[in-house]
Amino acid sequence: MAGQTVNFKLNGEEIRAAAGWTIWQAARAAGVFIPTLCHHEALHPFGACRLCVVEVEKDGKKTLEAACSYPAAEGLSVETETPRVQKSRKMTAALLLARCPSVPLIRELAARLGVAEDSLPLKGRAEEACILCGRCVRVCREAIGKRAVSFAYRGPQRRVSAPFGEEAPDCIGCTACVFVCPTGAVKAVRQDNRLRLSPWQTELPLLSCSACGRSFAAEKVLRHLHGLQKASFDPETLCPVCRRKQVGEALEKVSKLGKAGSFPPGKEQKQFKH
């Protein structure tokens, strides 16, 4: 497959994509913007939010397909902004707005697509922020390999949840879920040397830097990372800032001994200031 390419039409223009790319990937490479909420480049296509639908013509038949998961293929003709696409996208945004009425990102999206505030009768809870894109669940499974959280229940009751809606025993506190969440529904709060993750109801102790004494990461994360590097876990660990400082000082020492250019000490201190 390596090196192979496929040619297809995107908004009337012939474009080339690597074999195995999705329409979304090909469009991005060609500079064509297709909105999406559930898709994340670090994760497998999921096809849940349906914002990225595009009109695909294949064998003379036009259908709406999710660009994030539909493979780019020879001879397709893809349109990203037809009235049919816009109509569908607008309704999807309206549905998400009705579910999460107070999430800024959703409100902005809806406003940009021209969705009126009360276009749908059934309203979600004001505090609802989760659009069920599953990025948190997927990053935990695909990128971290932990599967600490999952979807639970189904249909209108579907939610993301730690087992039994209580503390997630397999959570290591890496906060990747917080990082990928597009709406701020997954949150991490650091307080009193502890990391609190919601909605996972999970609390983990943070490890303190053996140099500066600040708490910086959950112990389980560090154990996990050491495990990946096949190195034994040393509880006397430095926080990233102190580690960089240490490395910097070592480099400085080397440069003083040798003749290569040195770090101006003043600048370095400013840079590494906590």
């Binding site: 939010c49 349906r50 549905l95 009768p121 659009i131 229940y153």
Partner: peptide
């Protein structure tokens, strides 16, 4: 269909709920 929907995609989960609400009305 709402009861049996897996709830993965927006149109089926949210759209179905809105539609059901309208019919109940």
């Amino acid at each position: 269909t709402q009861d049996e929907s897996c709830g993965k995609c927006t149109p089926c989960r949210e759209g179905g709920a809105q539609l059901l609400h309208l019919l109940e009305k």
